[in-house]
Design a binder for these strands. Structure first.
Length: 594
RNA sequence: GGGGACGUGGUGUAGCCUGGUUUAACACGCCGGCCUGUCAAGCCGGAGAUCGCGAGUUCAAAUCUCGUCGUCCCCGCCA
């Protein structure tokens, strides 16, 4: 006899049907004379009832414990009036058990499988199979599946074909640290796991594939974060004979359909666009969170404080820096205002990010005395607040200043904006806000390497080739990033499809001819054989999934994620291997090791 | 590489600042008993932690100090 239904799918339509269910014991309520068990499977929970009339069955049912695996056969019945449970989708029915088989027992789980308590993450990862029985995580995996399914369906419908690219490939300089895999057949050499299928997808364009996509695992051996795992998934897209608008339109269609089909949220297209320069100057980041509209935009007040008696400000400007600020209106701040200890904490936060200090201006600010009445009025005027006179004004915003190099001021104020929004629990005006960040510089100067490096990657086309002979910091890239709620979802560009231009970029990046040939020779070669103009994008699938699931960390949308040290508590990976394995790989075994 | 937070029965927390009436508290879970309509069942009883690990200060350390390990957040890093 086989299962006939999922627990979670039963309702009044099934009344009087004989059903066979399989599932785990979610909770049991033994009333002595009647035993209720909430039986759980992937689709949900249903109450099953053991009645004392069936004596043998009842005695066996008394032995049932949490997480036992049961198969039960019984009749679906409408619950008696007054015993219906509106909190449960199946709450109008229950199963009167006629037969019950314990398919497996279970030890007492190390933590409760419950929506009401969540164990520490390390323990949850060690017993991930139990954690994944929780509704929230199980639902996350289902949403993840729906997302990838919808992506494949939609892109296939748009004429894209999914092609698998190698996981064992070639290490390339630039970019993230590679994971390496030793080659047994070629002692002393290594494959690298791909950071992305970038070069392969470009080569597929040369092949005439025209429209490629892949939902693909990528690997980067860098430090982990809430939104960064060593292996992660991208929606990788590449198209031939297109410009920026084609890629952007494709992604807007994809994302808006996903938002509609998965969340039921209608997103208007086209999405907003913002220049990189504006984003940095106004939000202190290239991934601005626009859900808060105009709250706490960064404002430059250098001009109005340059001549002031406050030396920290005037000298910062004199030294070629700037004075910028964010302001928090009292309405947002709440009636309490910022306590001194809160200001101290924010100051610590700012200095921790490289600021020399954090100046603040309100009615009781100690720096107020360094400014003339006119200067104070002007400061408020620049941030868009009309302050008449210099009497205490309870409606005046609190203003936080950073006087520093432009880069530091922007970065610190951008982080401060996010921090204050979080601390004050400021409500977003919009739930989901997409924005394209465009007009990136092609290069940025690396102080560490004393050369220009690619901001995006070395295959990105400049807007104007002629600019490459001038000031390299002024060269704009044909690149675009898609940002959702302050998260960088992905980025792409129109690629270089001419060998001579690609070689020129490599030389600007101080990648020598021989190194370029050694590392990227196959790409340069491919470009010679009729490479079509092409471009594309890669979207962070885990990050998208996390936002749609309402999770802070991508670990909660990945079935088996790793800890911050890259460890899998479930399997214990990474682990030492035997000397035999190492010898086969021609890797030297140190003395004293097995 | 750096900054910060945390680590107390099986789980989640309190206690730590201000060392000693603490026999380390509470909730959940677990075990036993009672109970025929509960649904995060209820009532009664019980077991279970030398407070991550190590050293130090002290008459006395969960509590203070240092080190160490682990987890998490952030900077660097992530084209």
């Amino acid at each position: 006899m086989k299962r006939t239904h999922y627990c979670g799918e039963l309702n009044l339509k099934n009344v009087n049907q004989k059903v066979i269910l399989c599932g785990w014991v979610h909770t049991r309520r033994d009333h002595g004379g009647v035993i209720f068990i909430d039986l759980r499977d992937r689709e949900g929970i249903v109450q099953v009832v053991f009645r004392p009339e069936e004596k043998d069955l009842f005695i066996r049912a008394e032995k049932i414990r949490s997480e036992y695996v049961l198969q039960i056969e019984g009749n679906v019945s409408s619950r008696p009036d007054g015993t219906k449970n509106p909190k449960l989708p199946t709450g109008e029915v229950e199963i009167i058990v006629e037969k019950m088989e314990i398919l497996n027992t279970s030890e007492v789980p190390p933590f409760e499988i419950s929506s009401f308590s969540v164990a520490g993450e390390e323990l949850r990862l060690k017993y991930r199979y139990l954690d994944l029985r929780r509704k929230k995580l199980k639902d996350n995996l289902i949403i993840r599946h729906k997302l990838s399914h919808t992506v494949r369906k939609l892109l296939s419908g748009e004429g894209f074909i999914e092609i698998e690219t190698p996981f064992l490939t070639k290490s390339t300089p630039e970019g993230a640290r590679d994971f390496l895999v030793p080659s047994r057949l070629n002692p002393g050499t290594f494959y690298a796991l791909p950071q992305s299928p970038q070069l392969f997808k470009q080569i597929l364009m040369v092949s005439g594939v025209d429209r490629y996509f892949q939902v693909v695992r990528c690997f980067r051996d860098e430090d982990l974060r809430a939104d960064r795992q060593p292996e992660f998934t991208q929606i990788d897209i590449e198209m031939s004979f297109v410009d920026e608008e084609d890629v952007i339109a494709t992604v807007e269609k994809l994302l808006s359909v996903l938002m509609r089909d998965i969340l039921g949220v209608e997103i208007k297209t086209p999405f907003a666009r913002m220049d990189y320069e504006y984003a940095i100057n106004t939000y202190g980041t290239d991934k601005p969170d626009l859900r808060y509209r105009d709250v706490m935009k960064i404002t430059d007040v250098s001009a109005v404080v340059a001549g002031s008696g406050f030396k920290i400000f005037s000298e910062a400007v004199k030294a070629g820096g700037c004075v910028k600020c964010v302001s928090v209106p009292p309405a947002v701040d709440g009636k309490a205002g910022f306590s001194r200890s809160a200001i101290d904490e924010l100051t610590k936060f700012a200095t921790g990010l490289g600021a020399k200090g954090l100046a603040w201006l309100n009615n009781s600010s100690p720096i107020k005395r360094f400014f003339s009445d006119g200067e104070i009025k002007n400061i408020y005027s620049v941030i868009g607040y009309n302050r008449e006179g210099t009497q205490p004004d309870p409606a005046a915003p609190m203003v936080f200043f950073i006087a520093d190099k432009k880069e530091t001021a922007n970065a610190v104020l951008g982080a401060l904006r996010t921090e204050i929004i979080n601390r004050l629990k400021i409500k977003p005006v919009l739930e989901y806000e997409f924005v394209w960040v465009v007009n990136f510089p092609l290069f940025e100067w690396s102080e560490e390497e004393k050369r220009f490096v690619s901001m995006h990657h070395p295959f990105t086309q400049p807007v104007d080739e002629k600019m490459l002979d001038g000031d390299l910091s002024k060269v704009a890239a044909r690149a675009y990033d898609i940002v959702l709620n302050g998260t960088e979802l992905g980025g792409g560009s129109i690629r270089i499809h001419r060998t001579d231009l690609q070689e020129k970029i490599f030389s600007i990046l101080k990648i020598s001819g021989s190194e370029a040939k050694d590392r990227f020779g196959f790409l340069l070669e491919a470009l010679k054989f009729g490479a079509p103009p092409h471009g594309g994008i890669a979207l962070g699938f885990d990050r998208l999934c996390a936002i749609l699931c309402g999770e802070e960390s991508i670990r909660d949308v990945i079935a088996f994620p790793k800890t911050q040290k890259g460890i899998c508590p479930l399997t214990g990976a990474p682990d030492a291997v035997s000397s035999k394995q190492l010898k086969e790989l021609s890797i030297e075994v140190k003395d004293g090791e097995k």
